[in-house]
């Protein structure tokens, strides 16, 4: 069916080398908007299991200032 073929594949299921960890903030940054918000899984195609791990890792790295809580691009 066309509906299923259009569905995006989860990047973490597809590639086992991509690890979700709060230290790898360069990977996590791809799943944030410019403002610093977490992009929902249905937009990026991340499966629900990995999305849960991802949100936890992002929140951990925000805690130690590796990722921003929010950014206003007008200030840059």
């Amino acid at each position: 069916m066309a509906f299923i073929s259009q569905r995006k594949i989860c990047p973490f299921c597809e590639n086992s080398e991509m690890v979700i960890n709060y230290k790898e903030y360069k990977v996590l940054r791809k799943f944030l908007t410019e403002q610093g918000k977490i992009i929902p899984g249905f937009v990026t195609g991340v499966c629900s299991n990995h999305q849960r791990h991802l949100t936890r890792a992002i929140k951990q790295s925000r805690n130690i200032a590796l990722l921003p809580f929010s950014t206003d691009y007008r200030d840059i």
């Binding site: 925000r62 130690i64 200032a65 590796l66 990722l67 921003p68 809580f69």
Partner: peptide, 16 residues
Amino acid sequence: RKKLAYLIDKQKYGTY
């Protein structure tokens, strides 16, 4: 030494 994503105690950098 890394640049912080936001200011902590008015500091831009910190040693992790």
